[in-house]
């Protein structure tokens, strides 16, 4: 697999008097991969997102997106390829209707009208918001707003979508909507996904997890392997989900586990195997 995003020895700080937010960060993200970036508040994870699409530029190192180095004079090329959804659903709207809002990014890029109509419809269909074309964005629920924000991003056909704590301000129903939408989009379109979060239940479906701590890559792992490391994660201000905690208690009781379970069903399977062997 070819790498689509690459960080090479990237360091960043807001000004010379301030401490480094990122220090010598290296990683690669492949085409068609879902990578979750997690870390405590202030670990530098949101800075990574802003560096990928040229909202910020590093003082040291290089960031390559789709073969192009992110620089002042390449930001527009980069932003054709990188779509971002931010935390606050109320801060991402410019249009007075859902349709206008999705059209905004397309107009900016001078897309022809017929093509625009097709893209608006297909991207709203991808997030199941096609019945809301003429609705006012600010009257939608938080989850619906974020889905429209995702549709606006999809409409410009990016090759990577970054969700920067896009579920943090939503209620549980809104969160579930977004996770469902992300899965559907990932399934339907060939793109790379970067989700930034500190909710560990949201990383279960990712292919790979990059754990940030104090501006450095602390660990790269699969979710399954990551969840074995309860004490280590807790020591850097994170936690493991319920299923992993329960599995941990079972290990303490000398119950052998074949695999590190990721969800209720897998955990029940482990208990079943244990039970039937006795």
């Amino acid at each position: 697999m070819s790498s689509f995003i690459e960080f090479k020895h990237v360091s960043f700080r807001y000004s010379e008097e301030q401490p480094w937010v990122l220090k010598d960060v290296n990683f690669k993200i492949n085409v068609d991969e879902w990578v979750a970036i997690i870390g405590h508040n202030g670990s530098g994870k949101s800075t990574i997102a802003k560096l990928i699409n040229g909202l910020l530029f590093p003082q040291e190192g290089q960031i390559i997106v789709d073969g192009i180095e992110v620089k002042q004079d390449t930001v527009w090329e980069i932003r054709q390829r990188v779509g971002m959804v931010f935390q606050n659903p109320d801060n991402q709207f410019v249009g007075t209707t859902v349709r206008d809002d999705v059209a905004f990014g397309l107009e900016n890029r001078g897309i022809a009208r017929e093509e625009m109509v097709t893209r608006i419809n297909s991207s709203l269909a991808s997030v199941s918001m096609n019945d809301f074309l003429l609705h006012e964005p600010h009257r939608l629920s938080g989850g619906q707003k974020q889905r429209v924000a995702i549709a606006s991003v999809l409409a410009i056909s990016p090759t990577v979508i970054i969700l920067d704590e896009a579920t943090a301000m939503l209620d549980p129903r809104g969160r579930a909507e977004i996770m469902e939408t992300i899965n559907a989009v990932k399934h339907e379109r060939n793109l790379a996904l970067v989700t930034i979060t500190h909710d560990l239940t949201e990383i279960v479906q990712a292919d790979r997890v990059i754990v940030m701590n104090n501006g450095k890559v602390w660990l790269e792992s699969t979710p399954r392997n990551l969840f074995r490391q309860k004490d280590e994660l807790q020591s850097i201000g994170l936690d493991i989900p319920f299923v992993a905690k329960f599995a941990d208690e079972l290990k303490q009781l000398d119950v052998p586990l074949n695999h590190q379970p990721l969800n209720h069903e897998e955990l029940l399977e482990e208990l079943w195997t244990y039970h039937s062997k006795m």
Binding site: N41, E165, A168, M169, G237, L238, D239
Partner: peptide
């Protein structure tokens, strides 16, 4: 606790 990391929340 909205927006805080897991340790911050606890």
């Amino acid at each position: 606790t909205a927006g805080l990391d897991p340790r911050g929340q606890k």
